[in-house]
């Protein structure tokens, strides 16, 4: 009984602290924008370094989707719709979600470990004592970089999955479909609002992953175990949050 109360109150206070952390980040964004160089460096760490995994996964996801769809749709004589289905699935759901999950694994974990180590080695304290606010110089720039990087990565991922290599490769080059039909079908059925939804989701996921990663890193106990736990729970918590938020956002934007 008292145990469960303690667990719940711990959970609530953790949530509360995470909220405060988010407010602090948001209020540090303005000053952080004055130092674009730090942000550029973080876009490199967060975005550019995730490019390879995003491109390759995008290709394979598009290919496997197209292959599965082609087999089934062929039975109804509707194999022209392969492109539409791949495009809608990727743009509405798979693009932001899979890119977000990969991002959490690739960039979020690295971020949590980095911040956790900075804390453990007193680098954040040293900044504070030099009258430099780590929120502005360390946390906010990474947050902004995540917000910029994930939508871009999602766009690249989706394009890989739909056009360049994934769906197009299977439906047109392998199964002998017509490239013109492939594109015109997609063009006729994907709406601008689908794209908007895709990028809104990606932006939200980017923020949430970075928020969780940095909160975990910032509050990690200054030990090797603490840092490794922070990394693990970053990946777990942010993956679950992405899936849950995806549901919520879809429900919001479709109704």
């Amino acid at each position: 009984m008292t145990g469960s109360i303690a667990i719940i109150s711990n959970l609530l206070s953790g949530l509360g602290r995470a909220q405060f952390f988010l407010f602090n980040i948001l209020s540090a964004i303005g000053p952080a924008l004055l130092r674009p160089r730090i942000i550029v460096r973080q876009i490199y760490m967060i975005g550019v370094q995730s490019l390879v995994i995003i491109v390759i996964s995008g290709m394979f996801i598009g290919m496997v989707l197209a292959l599965q769809m082609a087999n089934t749709l062929d039975r109804f004589g509707a194999e022209d719709s392969v492109g539409v289905i791949v495009a809608l699935a990727v743009i509405r759901e798979l693009g932001p979600v899979v890119a977000g999950l990969l991002f959490a694994g690739r960039a979020g974990s690295a971020l949590a470990a980095e911040i956790g180590l900075m804390r453990a080695t007193d680098q954040l304290s040293a900044m504070e004592m030099m009258a430099v606010d780590p929120m502005r110089r360390v946390v906010a720039p990474r947050f902004i970089a995540g917000l910029i990087s994930l939508p871009l990565l999602t766009a690249i991922f989706s394009l890989m999955a739909i056009g360049v290599a994934g769906g197009h490769l299977i439906a047109v080059d392998l199964l002998g479909g017509d490239s013109g039909t492939y594109w015109s079908q997609i063009h006729a059925n994907v709406e601008l609002s689908d794209l908007r939804q895709c990028f809104v989701k990606a932006g939200v996921f980017g923020m949430v992953v970075n928020w969780i990663a940095m909160y975990q890193g910032y509050n990690a106990p200054p030990t090797s175990e603490g840092v490794s736990n922070a990394t693990t729970s970053t990946v777990v918590v942010s993956s679950l949050s992405i899936l849950a938020l995806d549901f919520v956002l879809t429900a919001f934007m479709f109704s």
Binding site: T121, D122, S125, A126, M127, M130, A131
Partner: peptide, 28 residues
């Protein structure tokens, strides 16, 4: 503002690990 008037040498140095020695000293 007060902290700009204080310097502190941390027990373990606490240098910023992604900057060179030069940039660390130049940082403040």
């Amino acid at each position: 503002r007060l902290r700009q008037r204080m310097g502190m040498l941390f027990q373990n140095g606490a240098l910023l690990t992604d900057l060179t020695v030069f940039e660390n000293v130049a940082y403040p």
